[in-house]
């Protein structure tokens, strides 16, 4: 079996095993897996309302997936997407309600604010890594919680003790009346266009620019890149910052599209951590991220239909997603299995 086929087969096999284990869990718990997966399917594709909301759910996943994937390509693990997303969320919501501007300035400005906030939060991580060789995983985990507490405190101050900021103005919202109408009042918004645009941006940076070539080189082999005259430290900071732009925009999708405000949170949104799964499944390529995000976004949204239609707790899907990540991460053993299987076939 060629390497390329194996590379595609590993995530596919992981998804299948994940779904099978999910079915087994349902059977053991006394639920009907056929009923469960039917409810899941209907929750995703059942009607135009579901499809609209599924696409809405996929949108931030694409961006958080891009954020993780971009950093991965440069050899960095951005586990801090969650915190960068929260900063972007707050920045977009604030600019969205605090300024009165014409729409063609206001909306881009709000998006830009989110990108800048996310980029700044990620820049700290890159800076710490480049200047003080602080491992980016630990630094970003710590900054996740710092962001959670800081954004909560700021939201409390902005809203005079309430739990959410005022609603963003018409001129900054990503929602469009016609999108609502064609999807039976779902909360589908224009964000999906922003997300797909960013997919193109990531592809363009990595494949068509000198800077992107340098970033990838640093990811492949830091020492070789340095020897070739590339500034590794500068590239690390830049890679984290760009990754943070994607993460911040993911927050903007929630602020300007889905929720229209920023609210105090007891815990993380989960979008940032799921972004790791998305990137991993998509093999850190822009197009792969779209597939990964589509899968996990659909599963996440469709799961909400499972308690109503099949009486199964929606957490079953979270279990399945976690298992898929687990199997993709353990790709070595699946590869080994596939290769043995392939050899056997050739021998026959």
């Amino acid at each position: 079996m060629s390497n390329r086929v194996v590379n595609i087969l590993v995530p596919v096999v992981s998804i299948i095993i994940g779904l099978i284990v999910g079915a087994i869990v349902m059977v053991v718990s006394g639920y009907d897996p056929v009923l469960g997966y039917t409810a899941l399917w209907n929750g995703i594709f059942g009607d135009s309302y579901s499809i609209g909301n599924t696409i809405r759910q996929i949108t931030p996943y694409i961006l958080s997936g891009l954020a993780v994937a971009f950093a991965f390509r440069t050899g960095l693990f951005n586990i801090g997407v969650e915190g960068q997303l929260l900063m972007g969320w707050l920045a977009a919501a604030y600019v969205g309600y605090a300024f009165e501007l014409p729409r063609f300035i206001h909306l881009p400005l709000a998006l830009l604010a989110a990108a800048a906030a996310g980029a700044f939060w990620a820049f700290i991580v890159g800076f710490l890594k480049a200047k003080f060789s602080v491992h980016e995983v630990i630094a970003s985990i710590m900054l996740n919680y710092t962001a959670l507490h800081i954004t909560n405190a700021v939201i409390r101050n902005l809203s005079d003790g309430s739990f959410k900021t005022p609603t963003v103005l018409e001129s900054a919202t990503l929602r469009m009346p016609w999108l609502r109408e064609i999807t039976d009042n779902s909360s589908l918004h224009l964000g999906i266009i922003v997300a797909l645009l960013m997919v193109f941006v990531m592809w363009f940076i990595l494949e068509k620019t000198t800077r992107g070539y340098e970033l990838k080189s640093v990811g492949f082999n830091k020492d070789a890149a340095e020897y070739a005259g590339m500034n590794v430290k500068k590239n690390i900071i830049l890679a984290m910052t760009i990754s943070g732009v994607f993460a911040g925009l993911a927050g903007a999708m929630e602020a300007l599209g889905t929720f229209q405000n920023a609210s105090i949170k007891a815990g993380f949104s989960g979008i940032g951590f799921d972004g790791i799964a998305v990137a991993l499944l998509g093999a850190n390529t822009p197009l792969g991220v779209v597939f990964g995000a589509s899968l996990f976004g659909s599963l996440k949204y469709g799961a909400l239909n499972m308690p109503n239609e099949a009486g199964i707790p929606e957490e079953i899907v979270a279990i399945i997603i976690a298992l898929i990540i687990f199997f993709v991460a353990s790709g070595y053993i699946i590869r080994l299995g596939l290769q043995k299987f392939g050899k056997k076939k050739e021998g026959q």
């Binding site: 586990i79 951590f273 790791i276 707790p313 957490e315 279990i319 997603i321 976690a322 298992l323 990540i325």
Partner: peptide, 13 residues
């Protein structure tokens, strides 16, 4: 990360 997701999901399930 997978373990963290799995832990919460399994427990709440």
């Amino acid at each position: 990360v997978a373990l963290n997701m799995l832990g919460v999901a399994v427990a709440v399930f």
